[in-house]
């Protein structure tokens, strides 16, 4: 009864891309629930718009390339949910639609579809709309007093910390009862979903670990040399899109390195860029740009971290 087959020796079927995407969707449930709880109908509207237009653009762009429509692998839905969760609650409908079309079309299909893209599609879409509509996605888009939702009468925690040196409490930041983009408000919800992903091995734990490590170190150093005295390391960890980005965006298997060492380098580099942007740039939050920057480094990280196979290094071919 010895079964002989070439590698990979994996018995289950959980490694297909559609199963992985289903895992991600399951892991996003706490974040979605929290977003709906905090932002009510705004969150439902934003997610519906983004998912619908992501699926539509996947269908349209695949038809243009003359391929059959790969909607069933669920990657477009995942991109849509992540994009929606990274937008502010007040973003008008066209922001979601344009962001989705750019995410799927320019971010993914143009490179050749799922598995070929260099940059995280959701972040490409968000970067596009963020630069395109600075008014609809800037710091002022988060604040409004006329909607009956108490939370959104205040500035987002990182903006408040940056502009007026106000610091919100740690518990609201951790639980999610503070202002922000839809999915990022609750560190707890992201943590639950993220741990599920890591235990299912759909996400590699090295990447979030690397991000947290470098954010803790750099945040601690920044706190000690008092660049932002009132923001402690825990504030840096719980505020903004750090948990959401670390667990759901950075761990995208297509745009992150393949090797364990590479994943550590990727995570640490990401944390470095996040902290640099948060501390020294005009933007309050830098997860998106940090992810895009590190995505661009992935091929070179992969090249320099090829592990040594069992039995020693591969002898170099002689060039005759």
């Amino acid at each position: 009864m010895i079964h002989v087959s070439p590698s990979p020796h994996y018995p289950g079927k959980s490694r297909t891309s559609s199963m992985m995407m289903r895992d991600v969707l399951i892991a996003l449930i706490p974040c979605v629930l929290m977003a709906v709880y905090v932002f009510r109908s705004h969150a439902v509207f934003q997610i519906a718009v983004c998912v619908a237009s992501c699926l539509a653009s996947e269908a349209i762009f695949s038809l243009m390339r003359g391929k059959k429509i790969p909607l069933r692998d669920g990657s477009a839905a995942v991109t849509g949910v992540i994009l929606a969760l990274s937008l502010p609650w007040s973003a008008p409908w066209y922001v979601g639609v344009i962001g989705s079309f750019v995410a799927i079309g320019i971010g993914k299909i143009i490179y050749g579809g799922l598995g070929q893209n260099v940059f995280n599609p959701a972040m490409v879409g968000r970067a596009f709309v963020m630069i395109n509509f600075p008014v609809a996605l800037g710091a002022s888009a988060y604040v409004s007093s006329g909607t009956g939702i108490h939370i959104i009468t205040q500035a987002t925690p990182l903006t408040a910390a940056k502009l007026t040196a106000q610091v919100s409490g740690l518990w609201p930041l951790f639980l999610g009862t503070c202002n922000g983009s839809l999915g990022e408000v609750s560190a707890l919800a992201c943590l639950i979903g993220g741990l599920y992903l890591c235990f299912r091995r759909t996400a590699s734990w090295e990447i979030p670990a690397g991000i947290f490590l470098s954010v803790i170190i750099l945040g601690g150093v920044a706190n000690m040399v008092s660049i932002h005295k009132q923001i402690t390391v825990l504030h840096h960890l719980f505020s903004g899109a750090l948990f959401f980005g670390a667990f759901f965006i950075a761990t995208d298997p297509v745009t992150s390195p393949l090797t364990p060492l590479g994943k550590w380098i990727f995570g640490i580099g990401l944390g470095f860029f996040i902290m640099m942007i948060r501390l020294f740039s005009g933007y309050p939050e830098g997860v998106m740009f940090a992810v895009l920057l590190m995505n661009g480094c992935v091929p070179i990280i992969n090249r320099y971290t090829i592990p040594v196979p069992v039995g020693g290094p591969v002898p170099e071919k002689k060039v005759s």
């Binding site: 008008p92 066209y94 320019i106 596009f128 630069i131 395109n132 509509f133 600075p134 008014v135 609809a136």
Partner: peptide
């Protein structure tokens, strides 16, 4: 009409 600021910037030209 919301102005697409990106289109006036260099990345828009490349797109």
């Amino acid at each position: 009409w919301p102005n697409w600021v990106l289109m006036l910037l260099p990345p828009g030209a490349f797109f």
